[in-house]
Simulated scan of single mutants.
Amino acid sequence: MTGSHRAPSRLPRVSRRVVAAVSTAVIASAAAPLLATSAAAAPVPRTNPNGTISAPGRTQISFEHTLTGFHAGTANEHESRPGLSIVKMYIADYVFTHGTPEEKAQATQMLRTSDDRIASQLYAKYPQSINATASAYGLRDTHGAAHWGNSTTSTADSVKYLEAKKRQNPADPVLVALATASPVAADGYAQNFGTSTLPGVIGTKWGWSDDRRSFHASASYGHDFSVAAATHGPAAQLTHDVQSAFAPGGHIPAPPALPTPFGSAGIPMMNYPARQVVDQQVGHIAPPVTDPLVALVPEYVPMPQPVADFLPQPR
């Protein structure tokens, strides 16, 4: 949801204590499943001959496979669209680093129930939170606004962010909150559409326009993938377009085959994700200049494992 524009109000003192207690229990109980290694197989996107995901122009979809680095998206995946409640992930991320224990508990509740009142309260104190998170994670399509509900983002940015959080810490409080989201939001809207309907999903953040018809979005992650989608239309349309964009029983393209063992000693080889690492290291510095340069870097570079271990690793 985009959230109303009325002045933010503070939560009652008793409610804050309840939120803190519930949030602590939720994080403790949810962290273990997130660290589990077994999960349903990742969904597989249907792609066009040019490699983009097949979907109507009204809809934007991005997907990334964690284990191989395989990424696919619609041709418009970098279009900066209404961020709705998806940007609450970025607000919460900042609060989990800079906020008080009470504010961190509120941030968890905000993500789980998509609470606009808490979002307005936290954003009023941390108006830099969306842009700061976008800068930290290289989210080039994400832009904060005076009111958080008017901020913009893209599905490509949502997927990039979720994959980074998974690499940094699978039990990150943002991921835990998404994995324990309430079936019904604070405003009574059902949180059950879009990418959350795909197999293997662990956690999701949803968003919808105030009229509950004109725009819907969702961003989800599983053990070995992240996926996000947004559409100009109702929730059922987003679900339909997402379901149509993924094929049952498909296979994620594997990284290029490794060469034979290195030298006579049989030193193990690996496909080093060179482009991903370079993008994370320098891509954010000056995108108009660095983006074309990053694109020239091979996606994978075969090299001996001992050499790769000394190089920067994906975040």
Results as ranks from 00 to 15, higher is better:
Ser158Tyr: 11
Tyr161Ser: 00
Asn169Met: 06
Ala185Gly: 13
Asp141Ser: 13
Gln168Leu: 14
Gly188Asn: 00
Lys166Cys: 00
Pro173Gln: 10
Gln191Trp: 02
Ala190Thr: 15
Ala186Asp: 11
Val184Asp: 02
Thr152Phe: 08
Ser182Ile: 05
Ala146Val: 14
Gly138Asn: 00
Ala132Gly: 11
Asp187Phe: 08
Glu163Pro: 04
Asp157Leu: 09
Gly138Cys: 06
Ala186Val: 12
Pro170Val: 05
Ala156His: 10
Tyr161Glu: 00
Lys160Gln: 06
Val174Ile: 14
Ser182Met: 01
Ser135Asp: 12
Ser158Pro: 09
Gly149His: 06
Arg167Cys: 01
Tyr189Arg: 13
Tyr137Cys: 06
Ile130Phe: 07
Lys166His: 00
Pro183Lys: 09
Asp141Ile: 15
Ala134Thr: 01
Ser151Trp: 06
Thr180Gly: 08
Gly138Ala: 01
Ala185Cys: 06
Thr153Leu: 09
Asp141Asn: 14
Pro173Leu: 03
Ser135Thr: 15
Ala132Gln: 03
Trp148Ser: 05
Ser151Pro: 03
Gly144Thr: 03
Ala177Glu: 03
Ala132Phe: 12
Thr153Gly: 04
Asn150Pro: 05
Lys160Asp: 03
Ala181Trp: 00
Asp157Asn: 06
Leu175Ser: 11
His143Asp: 01
Thr152Lys: 10
Ala179Arg: 04
Trp148Phe: 15
Val184Met: 05
Asp172Trp: 03
Tyr161Gln: 01
Arg167Val: 00
Asp187Gln: 13
Tyr137Val: 10
Tyr137Ala: 09
Pro183Glu: 10
Asn150Leu: 13
Ala156Tyr: 07
Ala190Asn: 15
Ala179His: 10
Thr142His: 11
Thr180Glu: 11
Leu178Arg: 06
Lys166Asn: 05
Ala190Ile: 15
Asp187His: 09
Gln191Asn: 11
Gly149Arg: 06
Ser154Trp: 07
Asp172Pro: 07
Ala136Cys: 12
Val176Lys: 07
Arg167His: 11
Ala132Asp: 11
Ala134Ile: 01
Arg140Pro: 03
Gly138His: 02
Ala145Asn: 12
Ala145Pro: 02
Ser135Gln: 14
Gly144Ile: 07
Asp172Val: 08
Trp148Asn: 12
Leu162Gln: 04
